[in-house]
Amino acid sequence: MLRFPEILPALKTSTGRFTLTPFSTLDVEPLARILGNDDIWAQGFGDGESRPANPAELNSYIHRRFAGLPIFAIYYTGLPGGPLFAGTTGVTEVTEQYDRVKVGRTVINPAFWGTGANHEVKTAVFDWLFAMGAGRLECDVDPRNERSIRSLIRFGFTVEGTRRRSSPRANGTWRDIVVLSLLVEEWPETRQRAVHALDGRTGWQVPV
């Protein structure tokens, strides 16, 4: 039975290269810098909202979209100068009655794309969610975000289908959403593959 806590814990990934702490106002500025990257918005980020046109709008967007949600700030610990903010991930919806959790607000600094960082972070978060009693994890992904869809499939998620005409965009057109899921029964095998894929990355350094 899922029992979701009111306060998020601090988590550490299996290699120790990343720590996850509850997202706070101190993380807004570094997140805004990451969200200034064109590549993130080109993949359908924003749930149909228009891209903020200036720093003030971007800060307002972050506060509106992240406030009140159980979101983790991701920090890379492999630099001598101290932890480096690497992005966010967390939970956007919890249905305790059905042991169902929707995962979202995942933003990874493009400097970490292709390094396995996203899978490493997901493994730590999913370990915690399944330990809390989650039976089903869900991800809703914009069809344009092919990178994320491929990544989730490689991780072990199943594409259940496309929810057509799911929600309106700011420009009045309609968005389709790809729905993916991972079940608790699938987690032991999926986790083993994910951890095995990280074995060769213990000496990896952030490419920035």
Rank of each mutant, 00 (worst) to 15 (best):
A32L: 13
H63W: 12
L20R: 01
T95I: 11
A194F: 02
I40H: 03
N59E: 10
R201P: 04
P110S: 10
T21F: 00
G68D: 05
R64P: 00
S50F: 07
L129T: 03
F66C: 02
A134C: 05
E186N: 14
L137V: 08
P30G: 02
I74N: 01
T19P: 00
T190V: 15
V141K: 01
R3I: 11
R3F: 07
M1N: 12
P168M: 07
E138S: 09
E49M: 07
G172I: 13
G200T: 07
G116Y: 01
Q97S: 13
T202E: 14
L8C: 08
G87M: 07
V107N: 11
A10K: 15
F155T: 09
A117V: 08
G16F: 06
V179A: 09
W128F: 09
P143K: 05
G68W: 01
D142P: 03
P207E: 06
T77V: 01
L35G: 08
A32C: 15
V103P: 00
V184I: 07
I108T: 02
E186W: 09
I7D: 08
C139K: 04
G135R: 10
I34Q: 07
G116Q: 05
G81D: 11
T106P: 03
L198H: 09
F112A: 14
V28M: 06
F157V: 04
P52N: 11
R193N: 12
F66I: 02
N145T: 12
V103D: 01
P80V: 11
V206G: 05
E138L: 11
G82S: 05
L198P: 07
A53R: 15
T190A: 15
G133V: 11
E189V: 08
F126T: 03
P5R: 12
F155D: 10
G116C: 05
F130H: 08
T95H: 08
G203W: 03
Y98T: 15
N54P: 01
D47P: 00
P83S: 14
Q97M: 10
P80M: 09
F126M: 09
F157K: 03
V141I: 14
T15Y: 05
P188G: 04
I34A: 08
L58P: 12
T25N: 09
F45I: 06
G114K: 03
T77R: 13
V178E: 10
P83D: 14
G36E: 15
K12S: 05
G68R: 00
G116T: 04
L20G: 01
G78A: 12
W204I: 11
L31M: 11
A53F: 02
K102A: 14
G90I: 02
L84Y: 15
L20A: 01
F18A: 09
R51E: 11
L180E: 09
H196M: 09
T13R: 07
A67H: 07
G82H: 03
E146F: 06
E6K: 02
R154F: 06
R163K: 04
V125H: 01
H196S: 10
N171V: 06
Y61E: 05
R163T: 03
V184W: 04
G44K: 06
V103R: 04
Q43R: 13
S60G: 13
R193K: 15
V121A: 03
G78L: 08
R136W: 10
L58I: 13
P22I: 00
G48D: 14
L8N: 00
Y76I: 02
P52H: 11
